[in-house]
Amino acid sequence: MTPLPWPSTPPAYGSVVLREFTEADVRLALELGEDPYVPLIGSLPAHPTRQEAEAWVRRQQSRHAEGRGFPFVIDVAGTGVGTVGLWLRKLSEGIGIVGYSISPEHRRRGFASDALKAITPFAWTVPGVERIELYIEPWNRGSLRAAEKAGYRREALLPAHQEIGGFARDMLLYAAP
C-alpha cells in the first residue's frame, strides 16, 4: 500500500501536539516498556534494552512508509508522554483503528483524551476512512474515561476478540461520533 501523505500541520488539541517519532523518543520507549501492560499490546519488549528501544522507535518511523498507518508521539511542551496511532489495516472496509498508550508517569492528566481529540479530526481527512474504531479491555477504566471524554461511544462488548499476552481477551468496541 502506498503511504498517504503525512499531515502538513501536526494534529493538536489542548496542550498536546502529535508528531513523528525521533531518536529522542528512545526515552519514551524505555518508559513504556516498564509498564506491565504496554508490551502485551504491541511490539515493544518488556523492560527493553536501549538497543531494543531504538529498534522499536525505528519500527514506528517505518510504519507510515509501509502504508500501515500514522504513528504519532503525544508531545506536551517538548516531551513525549505517550503514543497514538491511526492504523489502516481495515481501510478497505472504510475503517481506521486508533490506539494509544501513555507513559505511567504522565497518566491521569488528560493527555490520552486530548490525543484522541487531536487524532480524530485528522483521521476523518484520510481518504477512505468512513469509521473510526477503538478497542479497550473492559477493566481499563482510565482508557474508557479517556475515550468517552473524547466523544467516543461504546457500541459493543466483543467476547474473546483480541489476543493479548497469549490470551483471548474481551474488548469493548468504541467508535467516533
Rank of each mutant, 00 (worst) to 15 (best):
T83V: 12
L134G: 06
R59Y: 01
Y37W: 15
S62C: 06
A65F: 06
Q61V: 05
A112G: 13
D25C: 10
P45M: 08
R50A: 11
P177F: 00
W6A: 03
V98C: 11
I136W: 13
L144W: 00
F111R: 11
E163K: 06
A112P: 13
L4P: 00
W139L: 15
L18V: 05
V73I: 05
G151H: 06
P5D: 11
D75L: 04
W6G: 05
D170N: 14
Y174T: 07
S143Q: 10
S101G: 09
G80Q: 06
R131S: 07
E148M: 00
S92C: 10
V84D: 00
L158M: 07
R58V: 13
R154P: 00
R169N: 09
L173N: 02
R27G: 08
A150N: 02
G42Y: 01
E130P: 02
H106V: 02
A176W: 02
L134S: 08
E155Q: 14
L86I: 15
A24Y: 08
R131H: 01
P7C: 11
W139H: 15
Y135S: 04
R153F: 04
G128A: 08
P127W: 08
P159A: 14
A146I: 00
G96L: 03
L91G: 15
A53L: 06
S113N: 04
P36M: 13
P121E: 08
P45E: 09
E93T: 10
E66T: 03
P121R: 01
E34Y: 02
E23W: 09
E137H: 10
G151P: 04
P7G: 07
G99I: 06
G128R: 09
R109I: 14
G142A: 06
I164Y: 01
G96S: 07
A118K: 13
F111H: 15
H47I: 05
V17P: 07
P121W: 08
P7N: 10
S92V: 14
A168D: 11
A150W: 01
S15E: 15
D75S: 12
A168N: 11
P71I: 04
E23H: 07
F167G: 11
I119Q: 12
Y174M: 06
G67K: 03
G42H: 02
I136Q: 14
W124P: 04
P48E: 09
P45I: 09
L40N: 12
T9L: 11
A24S: 13
R108A: 15
